[in-house]
Design a protein around this nucleic acid. Structure first.
Length: 261
DNA sequence: ATGCCGTGGAAACCACGA
């Protein structure tokens, strides 16, 4: 089974790219971020015709997350993280699909830092970490996938010294990520490719894509029961080279079948 | 060092992204 995450940067503006990628990659589960569409403008029908059931949490102009399932309908568990009823950003949705609990997240960017946006990022991170602790206790298969807006280590940045003061790479941000992972999550791409430079995002400007000035900020975190099934992980880099494409590329993992009892 | 590109929504510019 293949599970992927893709920050599409506008699900309607990017529908052609998304459908083309789905047809080629045939992922079984897909987490989407940055829909940039209100609830009623999500392209449900086009995705269904492509073979995918979906649940989503839209928002006008910004944010927005969705979970797609090939040949199935994701069963929604929750939308939004607990801990702050005032927070109206559409950044988290969770479903069970093909026997796995999937949390799809779009963590706040946090720039400029320091400032209120950075404070919001760290608060949101804390709420995610609290919720993730509960998911860890369940012992059922869980995947947390999405745009974390964090480069976990120097290896995840084309030029680390340039990013030291950035909200995506500041010590507080990296510390928050490592605190989360320490609960028992496995960073799937790092697990299978410990020493490789892997990027999932390249800016639209400054010629970032042609000169491979990238960041690894889209991640799939696996709890132990899923980590045991991990047999492959990668980035569909070619998608970043397409016309009218997102600034992120899809990231995926391959799981072997669960042992039947 | 930098929003230089790109999207969406409202208004013919602005907010936001990383």
């Amino acid at each position: 089974m293949k599970i992927a995450t893709f920050n599409v940067n506008g699900v309607n503006g990017r529908l052609g790219v998304l459908l083309r990628w789905l047809e080629r990659a045939t992922p079984d589960v897909v987490c989407l971020q940055e829909l940039k569409a209100p609830q009623e403008k999500f392209p449900e029908q086009a995705l269904r015709e492509a073979g995918y059931g979906a649940i989503w949490q839209g928002q006008k102009s910004w944010n927005g997350v969705a979970i797609l399932a090939r040949g199935a309908d994701p069963v929604e568990v929750r939308r939004g993280l607990p801990g702050d009823p005032q927070d109206l950003h559409s950044r988290y949705i969770e479903a069970t699909v093909h026997g796995i609990t999937v949390g799809c997240l779009y963590l706040p960017n946090g720039n400029p830092a320091p400032g209120p946006k950075f404070d919001y990022k760290l608060k949101w991170f804390e709420r995610l970490t609290n919720h993730a602790a509960k998911l860890q206790k369940s012992k059922r298969p869980v995947v947390l996938a999405g745009d974390f807006n964090v480069m976990p280590t120097d290896l995840d940045v084309y030029k680390p010294e340039r990013w030291i003061d950035d909200a995506l790479f500041r010590p507080e941000t990296r510390a928050a990520f490592h605190k989360l992972v320490k609960q028992g999550w496995v960073d799937a791409l790092r697990k299978l490719h410990p020493d490789e430079r892997i990027y999932t995002f390249w800016d639209y400007f400054r010629n970032a894509w042609p000169r491979n000035a990238g960041l690894r900020i889209d991640h799939l975190l696996l709890n132990p029961v899923v980590a045991k099934r991990l047999v492959g992980a990668g980035v569909d880099r070619e998608v970043r080279g397409w016309e009218k494409t997102s600034d992120h590329a899809p990231v995926w993992i391959e799981l072997k079948a669960a042992k039947t009892l």
